[in-house]
Amino acid sequence: MNTTPHHVVDVSHLSKTFGDGKTAFRALNDVSLQIKQGRFVSVVGPSGCGKSTLMQMISGLVPTTQGNIQIDGKTITGPQPEKIGVVFQDALLLPWKTALENIEFPLSLGDTPVAERQERARNMLKLVGLKDVGHRYPHELSGGMRQRVAIARGLVRNPSLLLMDEPFGALDEQTRTRMWGELLRIHEQSGTTILFITHSLVESVFLADEVLVMASNPGRIIERIEVDLPRPRDLKLLGSERLGNLRNHIWDLIAKPDDEIDA
């Protein structure tokens, strides 16, 4: 199979089975997806359908059972910190480091000179709009600020792909809405390709160029939807009919099996 270089992510026929023998559990079955450079792709699906598992395999943290994952045309076998930035559901900031030091953390693990890594961390802090709170410790930041620090940390090595697993799941609605605006701006400014996992249908549509809808048992992609909303996205779009239609369409896809059970 010949991969075209402009696909940052190329996942083909990916499957994952946890355990073996009687306790074997098929978490993902034959998942394929491609993401072009600079695109914002979101993944929605019911709880337990394997979204996090998919993300962990793409980030190289969890080995695959079958199939192949290529990032920038190269098959991955383990974590790819210089190519992939990751943002987790809970910010997972190291509590003994300041915001700035947390952003520096990925660079401090390699051999980047101290001056350079502080410079880059400070730029990232500016990018996420927190340039005044770099000296604060995580417990001195609000939930939204923590999540922005986590995004800055994910971006600090200038990765070709940013993986985000429900990064705003723990935030209140207002903060979350504000974060959407921030993330869209960051995406625009950094030009990074983003794979964004979420529970929220509105979120998946509003942010993304493309939505992958998943179903469970076994986890698989049941539909991909192009989002043809204009960019830059305005918060006013949230009330628009087009967004509402897309959202309803996804809901129909996800809700179907449950309705059958209810009946």
């Binding site: 962990q56 980030s59 190289g60 943290l61 974590p79 910190p81 210089e82 992939i84 990751v86 987790f88 809970d90 997972l92 190291l94 003994w96 953390f105 990925p106 693990l109 390699g110 940390r153 090595r157």
Partner: peptide, 24 residues
């Protein structure tokens, strides 16, 4: 343990995960 995943994803090797993250 999620901190371990985080550190590995950020590029920490085993020694760094153990001594800079887990021990701390």
């Amino acid at each position: 343990r999620r901190f371990v995943d985080m550190a590995r994803a950020m590029g920490a090797n085993t020694a760094q995960v153990i001594f800079q993250v887990m021990a701390r």
